[in-house]
Amino acid sequence: MRIAFSSNAYLKHTFDETAGRIAAIGYDGLELLADVPHAWPAGLLEVQKQGIRDAMARTGLAFSNVNCFMMNAVADPRQPYWYPSFIDADRHYRQVRIDHTRRALSLCAELGAPHVTTEPGGPLEPGQSRQAAVDLFVEVLKPLAEHAERCGVLLLIEPEPGLLLETTDQYEEVADKVDAPSLGLNFDVGHAFCVGEDIPRAIARMARQIRHYHLEDIAATRVHHHLVPGTGAIDFAEVVGAIRGTGYDGWLTVELYPFQDDPDGAARRALEVLRPLVAPAVGA
């Protein structure tokens, strides 16, 4: 397993500077934010894509993932950093999310990254039944999964508290209906803790579908607010042990977007906690 850091904590920095800082702290990889100011796909010029490649080559970092969950560029007044959703009542708003995801999948392939992570369907709209929302989500996902397959990358859904898919069981319901080899699960450990999942059990049960992990800590209250690993209630030794027990050898990406005022400090403290837990697997 290798540890990466998400660039979504570095919204106050250029991508070039972000890559340099993450590499200097000692991470193996970087999760690229497909959003402003780093890589908003709708407005990304070829020279900017090459700049991203050059920065990654210069720092020796590898891509762990492309994060297309967040959409600060849209600045939707309902929720400025990730709306609109796949199940938005307004079809034009839904199309914004669909188009962004399609562009992010294409960008992922162009840059040689393995997959993108995206939102699990927004909260239910007024008067919308859960079944209608699930059906709409499946309808939207099928052509995106086909596009991912054509691009040779994966589309990973990330369950989140308060949204349509909160748990691994709910993810499975949708994945079974989409039935596409390019669809997978991004297992966010903090999110799973928030909704009360038995994390080791869920990791073991979902091992074949989990293609990437997000790591952050959460307070004992289970309120959804990302904390630096080691400062909340999650037992990361147990979590990493459970992941290792499945034979997973991919990326663990630390996601600490609330720490934009001191991303270096948060990244450094997280690595101090996680590196000793992951290190025994190196060379195994």
Results as ranks from 00 to 15, higher is better:
Q209I: 08
S64D: 03
V66F: 00
A109F: 14
L256N: 05
R91N: 11
Q131T: 04
V223A: 15
L30R: 07
H212F: 13
G121L: 07
M70W: 12
P159L: 11
K12D: 07
E216F: 05
V189K: 01
T231Y: 02
V223L: 08
A55G: 10
L107E: 02
G190W: 04
G241K: 10
I203E: 04
A281G: 00
A175T: 06
E158K: 02
D261V: 06
G152A: 05
G241F: 14
R130M: 06
S182Q: 07
L215W: 00
L215P: 03
R53T: 13
E17T: 07
I3Y: 10
D235L: 03
Q95R: 15
Q128A: 00
G162C: 06
L111K: 06
E160R: 06
M1L: 12
A242Q: 07
D16K: 13
P276R: 11
T18I: 05
H191P: 15
H38S: 12
A104S: 13
D198A: 13
G26F: 12
R2H: 11
E17V: 07
Q95C: 05
T14V: 08
P258T: 15
A75N: 15
D76A: 09
G20S: 03
P80F: 08
A281Y: 15
H224F: 10
Y27V: 08
G245H: 09
L165P: 00
A233S: 06
D28A: 10
L144D: 05
L61W: 11
Y10E: 12
V66K: 00
C68K: 01
G190A: 14
P276F: 12
G112A: 09
G241C: 08
G162A: 04
D179V: 13
I234F: 03
L105K: 13
E119I: 13
L154A: 10
A39T: 10
Y213A: 02
